[in-house]
Write a protein that binds this DNA or RNA. Structure first.
Lengths: 346, 346
DNA sequence: CTGAAAGCGCTTACAG
DNA sequence: CTGAAAGCGCTTACAG
């Protein structure tokens, strides 16, 4: 009996179930509120959802009690009945997040989506995309942004399409799908023109990752733009990973004939800049991305603005999600952005 | 009649409801599977969940049909009945994500959490934390990581505690709560010692943000460590925002007597390095953070490893979530990491 | 091994 | 304006 006499001492924990005398907090439900106010659960639901057909005094009482009891609705229950795609959340599929460019991208996607009051759920695709796709559908997310290769398999696409979850590739061109990407071929071209303009005759391409379609496109763009008549000599150098760029660049610069280097990413180019400075070389260097340190490193580079790409993509998926919700026609989003060269005399 | 005769043409869309002759896809449920296989829904549920008490042939049939029908379970329904905190997802509260250090941090948190197969849901707290907290509880997330100031209000803490959602501050010390942070005072001390060791007599502190408790701690640590007897002169310079650092540094370096500068973040220090190089100054510069470009910029700085901080924090929240799930004792997590000085002779 | 039934917390016609 | 009831998709004792 004493246990019950003291029950009001629990204060905010008042609505608790007791097992073996120990108070165990149970979450407040509309049932609890209904009981305490003395109305039906339907009325509680209406009051809480701002339905106008509720007497003011009833509404006030319900709101007050809900607050007292620290009521917070159960999203799962609501979703179950409304069958709402939890359309305010969109999934972001990211492979290995080692890449500074991806980070700036995510930042802008985030900024833009929050402006449309969407939330982001990040999924890692290192262990394959299929389990992730299932998870996204289980959670009834509104849409998916897909960063980086590899593209979805046709089974994965089918799953998304059957379940009407719109998806958009970022920085990856795929004819059948929605995407926002930069023109990598054009970017490669810009790099080639830059080095040609500097009068380079013996050029090395460093760090091409042949798993990356983007980088392959840059490569072809570069090669196409090399003036045929100039007698320019182009060779390629693979490096095991980005952090080895400095050492490899030093070796490269021992060959005094080399007068131009194109690095397939800014991060690698930094090692080149460093080696160049230390060795007093006059080689021309151009990178790719224009991530934020490049300004300080005074690196000439092909800028693909993470801001533009991120915002455009975020914008796109929001449009797709809304379209899909309203069941309107499904206009494809296929945007190709143009990179530009930033000349910092490196 | 023809409509029905053609129904098999729909292939994967076979399980569709038709409204006014137009096929509208409806998501497959266990009911659909049960009907098609000719068993009860309970059996379907058991088979799908790997319950061993199901005859092999029944299980096979169910799995096959589930697959045919592209069945994916409804997470909301399952959560409703199991009342499982969706404990595989943890929320990450982030203010303005403009800060490179935060980015590296998020990356490591992500890496570590994915290893424990948790997912991350990022919430932006620019418009206040309360709505976000509610959202987290509605979604029944397993736990929350809180990045950056300001700390939660006591109401917000109450809400989390009542609903048993563990939370952990990152890079923010708060006596009553779980946190993982760096010793900022110690960091300030290291910076002071560095400049003193270089023989600096006239030092400027640049870019202190007095809204940031961390930076204030660094400031006090710095001031305490300045040798009393050396006659060292310390002054402060505010700059409106990080990108103005270069211009301000140039102005600063016009005063040839200044021989030491402590920048409260690496990003600002880059502007200083640039100005120093251009003006041929011999001033000593030290930064704070050691984000990735600092190595290339050859900036001496106080390293607080985003990797260590991120991993430790991720680890901590995972422990807290598991603890809270198993209802064990609730050991507080209060970890203070020690920064170190990286001397790059800047 | 399996089916029928209860119930998770909520919303929403429906009938007053 | 309000209550009682049905139902969202699933899990899980319970009784065969």
């Amino acid at each position: 009996v004493e246990t019950f006499a003291k029950s009001s001492d629990y204060g905010i924990l008042e609505s608790t179930a007791r097992t073996e005398g120990r108070p165990v907090s149970r979450k407040t439900t509309i049932k609890d509120i209904a009981a305490k106010v003395g109305v039906g659960i339907g009325t509680v639901s209406r009051a809480l959802n701002g339905n106008p057909n509720v007497k003011q005094s009833t509404r006030d009482a319900i709101l007050r009690v809900a607050n007292e009891l620290n009521y917070i609705p159960n999203a799962a229950a609501r979703m179950l009945v409304t069958n709402s795609q939890s359309e305010t959340t969109i999934g972001l599929l990211v492979p290995v997040v080692e890449n500074q460019f991806f980070f700036e991208l995510i930042k802008w996607i985030h900024t833009e989506l929050k402006a449309s009051s969407f939330n982001i759920m990040i999924f890692n695709t290192d262990h394959g995309q299929e389990p992730v796709i299932h998870h996204i559908i289980e959670q009834r997310l509104g849409g998916v942004l897909i960063l980086g290769d590899p593209p979805l398999s046709s089974e994965e696409r089918d799953v998304l399409e059957i379940h009407r979850v719109p998806y958009l590739y970022i920085d990856h061109h795929e004819d059948y799908a929605n995407f926002v990407t930069f023109d990598n071929k054009k970017g490669g071209k810009l790099a080639a023109q830059y080095l040609a303009d500097k009068g380079c005759r013996k050029i090395v391409l460093v760090g091409l990752n042949d798993q990356s379609q983007q980088q392959i496109d840059r490569f072809y763009g570069f090669m196409e733009a090399v003036p045929a008549e100039g007698g320019i000599q182009v060779s390629e150098l693979c490096i095991p990973n980005e952090s080895k760029s400095y050492e490899m660049s030093r070796i490269l610069l021992n060959d005094r004939k080399i007068d131009g280097i194109f690095y397939f990413s800014d991060t690698m180019a930094y090692g080149g800049i460093q080696a160049k400075l230390e060795m007093g070389s006059s080689v021309s260097i151009v990178g790719y991305d224009d991530i934020f340190p490049s300004k300080f490193m005074k690196l000439s580079t092909v800028r693909q603005s993470a801001q533009t790409l991120g915002r455009t993509a975020a914008d796109g998926i929001v449009r797709l999600v809304r379209q899909s919700a309203s069941d309107d026609g499904v206009a494809k989003i296929q945007t190709i952005l143009t990179p530009e060269l930033v000349d910092r005399q490196s």
